[in-house]
Design a protein around this nucleic acid. Structure first.
Lengths: 334, 334
DNA sequence: GAAACCAGTCCCATCTGTCTG
DNA sequence: GCAGACAGATGGGACTGGTTT
């Protein structure tokens, strides 16, 4: 394992002083064209790479941003991280991910401490669930923090990008009512427990139409659990329209309905959330509320960059959802 | 933004010297119980967190591992990263992710340089595709590298964990033949272009049965493209069994077949790859070759840890796949 | 426990050169 | 034409927060 060249090596080869090399590197202070040329040649010759650790130590120039999340592989989470990474890379930052498994104080504190000890430029927290929400409150004021979430918040005074999924749920529910359904049932995903979000939107749309929302069901992230719940809906003849927490849950509903002999969209209409790639491939193709998680990630990073640079910009950004009509919804029959 | 306490603050509060605190922290050199106690109390009182940058700078103690990947959100990729993160966190490492968008030299070099400048303890490359493969060859010998892949390799002399998907494809294909199908068609995902992998396994199984493999189709990662290809298979009456590159492609096949009026599994049998959550929710439920990507990630990290610690262990590990039988496969009819 | 050290940055002093009077 | 002033470029050395001799 050969050792990497240092700035001193570059200075020696170029025949200039160490600070001069540093000035060429950081670009802030002017250097004569002649020496700059010399230095650049030496850098290329040696294949010199500045040492990020030393740089972070002395100047606080941080080149990493951290993402705190309860999960990194589920569709929405992974897509958001992807958006963050894309924007971060374009801005010259690396992304370090830290999973906060549970909302327990120990887990949260460990994760936060880990992140802080690595002198990151900023932190983006995926406040999609309990662990994420716990992480938001556990982070100190000493580092720029941005929240990526599924709802606005008055309680937390931090820059925030969020998916307007409450509105999306409202629109989807209203759409189902406009098809003649007398009510809309709902299977909710685990969430951070705060108000707002899909369930609130669904409930609001029903109430606006003078309909008392039926009791909604709570699924875990395991689609098989959602499937069990869906079977109970399928067995209930009063159920003619279902708003599912995401596309996987919607697929579970589709399956449960079909097995029960109820046709979709003939007997029952189903709407999902996310517009995952699979949404257009199931049969019937899913009507769904598309959510641009990658955009959420990019916007979150943009907010973080503002915060890092101290350039106060808008500090709450929402990302719109869009109702995509496919084959799983239709007019109420009989 | 308050400033973080340093080791000197701890030393002052504890009434000991700076090196003593350092000794307590690293744990290598013995410290009297009394002073250790004093130091630990001071650390707790101040909420002191060692500065990872300073530590990496002086002692080469690296606490980050990098993951190089072409993508982070698709199922297999995201699950592998999740497994890496889980194992890394347990071992006290953070994970930084870097996306290598294309196999172009510039993109690869930039990504590699970025990783190297951050003094990571090691690198895991997801060699699932062209960009990943390019990254493997672009990394210098100066840092421990482990490859996570979908096939073994004789060419690359690096520790490697791989999914035995060639074997999985062989078993799946043989299973279809055992159901009476005269041949098996195949839609392949983009891959790194090297031999091995699913397509090779499929082809081997057919040849072993004395069957000349039909021309296989190449899809992109876009499921809609797979759907177009699937339609051409659906239109061909000689197609009675399909091995799809992954579950999304399989779902596309299911849909295309159904639209064409060919029943699954009555007229056509379909097998997917991965066992994504959705596999059991589509109709019919997918028979699929389950791949434990998270385990692949964990194994990769274990290899990396060996390499970092210099403890030479086994340097090639394979993760077995498993054929999961569900409703999309059945005996050849007529 | 004192002192050296890791790889950088940055303050400050020095030096050069040009402009002014 | 020459001293003095001043701006810009450059190098010396202290400093960052730890670890190790």
């Amino acid at each position: 394992m050969g050792k990497a060249p240092t700035i001193a090596d570059v200075a020696r080869v170029a025949g200039v002083s160490v600070p001069t090399v540093s000035r060429v590197l950081t670009g802030a202070i002017p250097v004569s064209a002649k020496r700059r040329e010399l230095v650049e040649r030496a850098i290329a010759e040696l294949g010199y790479q500045p040492n990020a650790a030393a740089r972070a130590l002395v100047s606080g120039t941080r080149s990493m941003v951290a993402v705190l999340a309860a999960n990194t592989s589920r569709y929405g989470y992974a897509k958001t991280v992807e958006g963050i990474e894309e924007a971060a890379r374009a801005a010259g930052y690396m992304v370090v991910i830290t999973v906060v498994e549970t909302a327990e104080q120990d887990a949260v504190r460990t994760a936060v401490a880990m992140v802080l000890s690595h002198s990151v430029a900023g932190v983006i927290v995926l406040d999609f669930d309990e662990p994420g929400h716990a992480a938001v409150t556990a982070l100190p004021q000493t580092v720029p923090v941005v929240v990526a979430a599924a709802a606005p918040s008055r309680a937390v005074k931090l820059p925030r990008a969020y998916l307007a999924d409450q509105r999306g749920a409202r629109e989807a529910t209203s759409y189902l009512l406009s098809l003649g359904h007398e009510t809309v049932h709902h299977i909710a995903l685990p969430s951070s427990g705060r108000r707002g979000g899909r369930t609130a939107g669904w409930s609001a749309a029903l109430q606006a139409a003078g309909i008392r929302p039926p009791k909604h069901l709570h699924t875990t992230w395991d689609p098989l659990h959602a499937y069990e719940l869906a079977k109970s809906l399928a067995a209930d003849p009063s159920v003619t329209a279902v708003l599912a927490g995401n596309d996987e849950v919607a697929a579970a509903v589709l399956r449960a309905m079909t097995e029960q002999g109820r046709s979709v969209p003939g007997d029952v209409s189903v709407i999902g959330f996310d517009d995952q790639p699979i949404a257009s491939l199931v049969t019937p193709a899913l009507t769904t509320v598309a959510q641009d998680f990658a955009e959420l990630g990019r916007q979150s990073f943009a907010l973080l960059e503002n915060s890092i640079n101290g350039s106060a910009g808008q500090d709450t950004v929402s990302v719109r959802t869009q109702l995509v009509l496919r084959g799983s919804t239709g007019p109420r029959r009989n």
